[in-house]
Design a protein around this nucleic acid. Structure first.
Lengths: 230, 230
DNA sequence: CCTCCGGTTTGAACGTGTTCAAAAATGCGG
DNA sequence: CCGCATTTTTGAACACGTTCAAACCGGAGG
């Protein structure tokens, strides 16, 4: 619900302009949901929003930029949804499962057409890429969720690993999303199975870092991650 | 060099037709390398190959299908390239490093334009997806390379893990490729750093499966992978 | 009331990937 | 050599995303 994203592409000028923006993105989302991304033409979006084709391009630089709003909206809704489980549950595995399953629940209605534009997200130069500057807000929101997952849990980690963990968990979620995109099973049952299988594994692996020999590996993972970020 | 792929989209009819196919894909590859995927138009490809636009579409169903040949060619060249290191080296880490680095070396000249069409590979419905039936041949070639990596190495694994390992290593390579696509550093230095960092980790983690407690985790990983394949 | 001037709107036009019906070439049985 | 069916070739035509110069506002200043 709440949009946590910072300023959209153009800074909001007048109230009327903002309303027009909303009308366009609203029409686009409805058409995307009904007919998919590719089948929805910019002309149809403009018509449905009651503006001309040129106006649509005045407010949104490209068809892809229309999806940015959906992105931010989903990430904000996820943030709100998981607040509940993060407030009550203390087990690390339960918290992580709640967060990952919550995302699947939220995204389920969009699965069919999400796949049709997730292709664009894979382009490093696309604004829809999870690593792009335009996605920074949604990314920060997501990493923060995983910071909370860790902070409120009973899991105890070495400081170095603990510091990198939220981002690693975000990476895990990206992996789940990737799996989800390819998952054609009913209700994305396979993705849910993946979550239920992989979370306990992560949990156990984390707790194994108490063993010196495993901790050594973990430290090297942290060192590698840090060296690659530079 | 050697194309290991099975039949291309249309089964080869005459020698002349095959020559025309080769001319088109050759012209396409040259233009892609020079100007990138998006900037290269189908009309330019047809012109460069000395055929009409319609003929280009008679031989290749779409612009994406032109890339399939490149895919198979790269995968075959990789297979040939690593034969050397796989014949001489016996250390698991060295063998795996050789395979992953070999791919980076081979793909380096194509990095700039590869990113522009790898977006299509992320579309589950695209023939270029690494999981698509059309990519089955290249995928099998790649998994087989990793089977050899393991078979000729000094690494000893539990039978169950050993059976799933080639596919897991292939998955690791897909991850490296994904990182590579996003890697804009000079000569893809960061991807090379990733390989040099991650391979020893995998090596150590594999050898840690001798410890009963780690082996338990490994067994669960195998069970999860198997359950998801079904 | 007129005159500007910035923000907004418009639809024609461009270049693209792709389709298609028709023409041309090819091969083959008689 | 002649139909004739099949394969191959062709370029016009289509729908799309995107661009752009021109038109249209609506209010501030004279």
């Amino acid at each position: 619900m709440t949009t946590l994203a910072a300023v959209p592409t153009p800074a909001p000028r007048s109230a009327k302009a903002e309303a027009t923006r909303a009308a366009i993105v609203g029409a686009a989302m409805r058409l995307f949901r009904e007919g998919g991304y590719d089948a929805t033409t910019m002309r149809a979006v403009a018509d449905a929003a009651g503006v001309s084709l040129g106006s649509a391009y005045y407010y949104f630089a490209s068809k892809e930029h229309l999806v940015q709003g959906f992105y931010d909206q989903l990430s904000g809704a996820h943030h709100d949804l998981v607040a509940d489980v993060l407030a009550t549950e203390t087990g690390f595995a339960e918290r992580l499962t709640g967060v990952l399953e919550g995302w699947i629940d939220l995204a389920e209605p969009y699965h069919d057409f999400a796949a049709t534009f997730f292709r664009n997200a894979a382009d490093p130069r696309s604004p829809l890429s999870p690593f792009s500057p335009e996605s920074a807000a949604a990314r920060a929101t997501s990493v923060d969720i995983h910071r909370q997952v860790l902070a409120g849990s009973d899991l105890r980690l070495a400081p170095a690993l603990r510091e990198e963990m939220p981002e690693l968990l975000w990476l895990l979620q990206m992996g789940v999303v990737l799996f989800w995109v390819y998952d054609a099973s009913e209700g994305q049952a396979r993705t849910r199975a993946l979550v239920h299988g992989v979370v306990p594994l992560v949990d156990r692996l984390c707790r194994l870092t108490r063993l010196p020999v495993v901790r050594g590996v973990a430290n090297d993972v942290v060192a590698l991650v840090r060296s690659l970020r530079a």
